[in-house]
Write a protein that binds this DNA or RNA. Structure first.
Lengths: 398, 398
DNA sequence: GGACTTATGTTGTCCGTCAAGCAAAAGTGT
DNA sequence: ACACTTTTGCTTGACGGACAACATAAGTCC
């Protein structure tokens, strides 16, 4: 970029100025003047407007540096609420969060997504409304509803596309239905994307390129590059479960192909291995419990699954060069066995340049990653510059 | 997105309005009014400003629709020129292009990049200056210089990082050196990224997610997602050459690992196979010549290489869900054998959702992709909204 | 040829932003 | 107690960008 013209920070609208507060850091009027390059009067007006709509709040006084101590302002995320929904094959998690996507109340219930869109979404709306009152808030305060579904979703219109484990959902207008039931804007995405987003924003917002891998009954990934979720042409990016694994050419997969990663290292595959050696396993969670109880065979099986996943992730590392890989999903709860197997192969199979700054870690948001990510889908839109500008304009008009 | 507030097309600066002209389509003042939502006087002022700096030019009158015929304006890319440079291990290609990255003059010479940065860049500067005059232009007209290097590059500062085949280049301030020699802004990137960009912008600018694969002595890829090049955390994204291929565990690779794609399907590997059967092969180009001459063994070897590449690309398709894969590099010139092998495996090994709209094609820009892409690096910056706004402001001040 | 339609040129007004100035508030240092 | 510094509130006039309204140019259609 040598010799390319550098541009001064361009004058920002109220919405863009607000972005400086998104990370929660407080600012003073004076600091904003130098940060945005705008005049004092303008900054004061912006702060007043943002405070009037409840997005900013006074945050006390900072210490003096030899003169009058400046009063500080900070993002006030309590003004509106968000409903985050994480739907799995057999469960539903809901959370009410503030505008910073921090949970205020949450719940979780068994729910068969195979029941079809109408009953499931009705239940979600009802449970969501209950949760809102339980958090001591009102439905009218909802800034939006974010929802993660266990299958491919066309993010642009929020409709599932050929979802394998969601019979009856293909092409359903999920946003339309939920919007009619709860009256708030609705954003839909794939559940793994949603978890990736949640983990990214809450745990490591400064990493620009990361891969979130969900390991459970199925295996999938969310791709974040240059700080944004990347969904691919049909919204199917990150579908690692059906990549071929070397040395497994004969193992059939439920997708109809053979040798898929999911058929080798997914929850069902591990369960199969352990059952052959006599253990009683019904769900993927049972595997985690066994490992946690110190079962050696289970630990070894999970570690081997990690190695198999590692071969696919090594290729992904070469392709995407992420700075972090986050392992989530139920099986990530099985201690370090899974990650150890993954690390083993990835660090062996990747080029030094790609791995020297690569960290492979387990999810920290854990079970909350889904609902938090779903809420983040909403806050990202609600707090976008043009959205805030519109909010202010409307407020002024009334 | 159902229920989310829709925003009117926000008022755009002259730079943003200009983006409507980037694809070469002419517009009338009246059409711009409806497209941008701005008033006639504003649009007229913008057009006048853009015409004054030479970025727009009158493009005659359109036919009347019942009233006064509108005068049209179109992007005039002839006002400034760009130098695009594509450096390979043993060759250099240069082209002077206009601001639409269309070549005006080009040249190509053998050049050993291993000679080190000083002699190579000096030669590039000299040859570049010659080419400028040969195109009947002046060095002062250069809007910038784009350059692709055969190795990992930190795109932000333009320095190569641990390039394996560029001894002496590690950490070299390429932009600084070239800027001093030619006085124009310099943008540097990896050669495969540059080719991907060139192919994207010239052949299929509407595809938002694509993968460009260069198959030659080495194998690499450029990743375009959501319409932009994605370079990864260290700028090493797309390094497919050293992904492990199943069933090749014993084959050693120059990178020190075993079973790498490049060691199985790269130019040297194919040459090895053919030499075992008695053919005389010195360069990767010789393989292409053999295939073109109808040599059956060579065709089979290339097709098998395609299959091996296909296994890696199948995984990439699952991960990125691109809408197009473009095969470039010297070996792409070997007719359809290579692509046939790739298609064979990719369509077999990927999920229907990811492949139903996937097209796998050979590069159309061919040998020009590199220089065109390098020039595009520059035009993308030079024609960016804020850059144009700055240009207009400077012009007005003087 | 005249009515109508569409595109373009011109002018004055409105609004947002800024710089500058002044006064007051609330600290620090001597 | 006093001078000094920094922040804030408030007002003013200047400037420029964007717009609406009016006026003109240059076609088509009957």
């Amino acid at each position: 970029m040598e010799g390319l013209q550098k541009f001064p920070p361009r004058p920002t609208g109220a919405g863009e100025m607000f972005q400086l507060f998104r990370d929660g850091t407080p600012h003073t009027r004076a600091s904003l003047v130098s940060e945005t390059g705008q005049s004092r009067s303008t900054v004061a007006a912006r702060i007043e407007a943002l405070t009037a709509v409840g997005l900013l709040a006074p945050a006390g006084e900072a210490s003096s540096t030899g003169g009058r101590p400046p009063s500080t302002f900070a993002f006030d995320p309590s003004n509106r609420i968000v409903l985050g929904v994480d739907l799995g094959a057999t469960h539903a998690r809901l959370a009410i969060t503030d505008l910073a996507a921090r949970p205020l109340a949450s719940t979780q219930e068994p729910l068969a997504i195979a029941d079809g869109p109408e009953p499931v979404l009705s239940w979600v709306a009802e449970a969501g409304a209950d949760l809102v009152t339980q958090a001591g808030r009102k439905v009218e305060e909802l800034a939006g509803i974010g929802i993660g579904l266990p299958g491919p979703v066309d993010h642009a219109d929020g409709r599932p596309v050929n979802p394998p484990i969601m019979p009856g959902w293909d092409g359903t207008d999920v946003p339309g239905i939920l919007h009619r039931l709860l009256g708030a804007p609705v954003v839909v995405d794939n559940d793994v994307n949603v978890m990736a987003l949640g983990e990214h924003r809450t745990v490591c917002p400064d990493e620009q390129d990361l891969l979130f891998v969900k390991v459970a009954t199925g295996i999938g990934a969310g791709v974040v590059m240059d700080g944004e979720l990347r969904r691919g042409a049909q919204g199917a990016a990150g579908d690692l479960g059906h990549v071929a694994v070397s040395g497994a050419a004969e193992i059939p997969c439920r997708c109809g192909n053979v040798g898929c990663l999911e058929a080798v290292a997914g929850g069902l595959a591990i369960a199969g291995v352990l059952q052959d050696s006599g253990a009683q396993i019904r769900t993927t969670q049972d595997i985690v419990d066994l490992v946690r109880a110190g079962d050696v065979a289970a630990g070894q099986a999970v570690r081997q699954a990690g190695r198999d996943i590692g071969t696919v992730l090594a290729a992904s590392v070469s392709l995407l060069n992420p700075s972090r890989i986050i392992i989530g999903g139920i099986l990530a709860g099985a201690g370090e066995h899974l990650v150890a197997g993954i690390r083993e192969v990835v660090y062996q199979r990747s080029l030094p340049l790609a791995t020297q700054h690569l960290r492979i870690v387990t999810s920290r948001a854990g079970a909350q990653a889904g609902v938090v990510g779903a809420a983040t889908l909403v806050t990202d839109r609600f707090l976008a510059p043009h959205s805030i500008d519109a909010l202010i304009t409307v407020k002024e008009d009334s």
